[in-house]
Design a protein around this nucleic acid. Sequence first.
DNA 1: ATTTTCTTGTGAAGCATTTCACATATTTGA
DNA 2: TCAAATATGTGAAATGCTTCACAAGAAAAT
Lengths: 221, 221
Amino acid sequence: MASDSLPEKKRISESTIHRLSLYYRALTVLEKEGFETVSSKGLAKREKLTPAQVRKDLSFFGSFGTRGLGYPVVELRDKISQILGIDRSWRVALVGIGNIGSALVSYKEFQKQGFQIVKLFDNDQRKIGSNHKGIVVSDIKNLANELEPDNIEMVVLAVPATVAQYIVDDIVKAGIKAILNFAPVNLKVPDDVFLRNENMSMELEYLSFALVNDHIPKRVR
Amino acid sequence: MASDSLPEKKRISESTIHRLSLYYRALTVLEKEGFETVSSKGLAKREKLTPAQVRKDLSFFGSFGTRGLGYPVVELRDKISQILGIDRSWRVALVGIGNIGSALVSYKEFQKQGFQIVKLFDNDQRKIGSNHKGIVVSDIKNLANELEPDNIEMVVLAVPATVAQYIVDDIVKAGIKAILNFAPVNLKVPDDVFLRNENMSMELEYLSFALVNDHIPKRVR
DNA sequence: ATTTTCTTGTGAAGCATTTCACATATTTGA
DNA sequence: TCAAATATGTGAAATGCTTCACAAGAAAAT
């Protein structure tokens, strides 16, 4: 027979991807601490995971370790940054300059990981034209016109839940394929748009549940 | 025989608890929209889940629906709020009045879900004594003395990663059993303390991975 | 050089979660 | 009143994820 099977793109679980972020962070610290190599055991301990989990996660992407020795810290960190796509910088627009939005403009962690907020939008006339960390707030009406010419590839949405769907529709129309939403609402987007939700109340609700039910979770993110 | 088995506390998955939060939110909207009942199908559609999932989740806690009709919106919402422990208010302290911390003090969603931030702490002399939304910032040195008398049961931690572990140690010593951590670091706490992490960069990294790998995630939070 | 120790990478086993499918109960409509 | 339609609740099947356990490779020790 000519061909056995289709390319078959392997599906990586959300958990694995999140753990890659943890490994990346741990490896950054390990490098600072002067370690040249680290074992799956050592890495696991730092993030409260199991060595097998670490090895399995990494094995989805290749063989990066040396038997008897472990993983080279810097090399592995670089490899993970490639996998996650953070070996480059991303141009991000932030829509909604309220409480949360303002905080995110100044949030250094984004910058550090290569997520550069380079554009701000709001619909409030008092905010439009004002300057936040060197960026002038644009009118949200210009969203469609201003995103593409500025090479924006991601949008962080920090607007009230009531208007989030309208705005996300505009964002999608503007061709953006990745959105991080802080509004506590389930937004509808086409299948080819990646949407992640950051729902901070949800985590407090989880804590509330845990306290009330004295619940020991099986797995911890 | 006298006794068959031990009480056997059933373990609920993290995912189920998170979905309860989603159901709660959806039911709140449904009530506002004037619906008296909703089917598992209807509820599922609102949160992009399957009807079977909704029914299974709820079945862990009891039988709340009527065959042929669905679930009573208000009743189910109240029941879920009981399960999650948000049928009461929680007194929360916020430690770290930086970018994120300041935003969270004003974040109305917390208030709405019954999480009342009633105490603020910082170590910066310029911030101590200042007023945020009617709350005077206390010196972090007084953490141990001021949490218990004020009946604080949860702490939101929004301090730099470098000092987070020291502060969390104090928080634990003060008897707090539930902590929501915004610092991008893996904090060590005793087994009887519930710790949740809110890592906003992680979600951007997920989006980055998705864009680079054109990855369609299997399950979405 | 050889043995011992260490540690990876990975099928397979073990669990956990989700989905299926259907008996059962209730409502709706004729 | 009865049939048709609707929708729950739940074992069982299917799927997915984690852990186990070990062969194999490399380093360290002797």
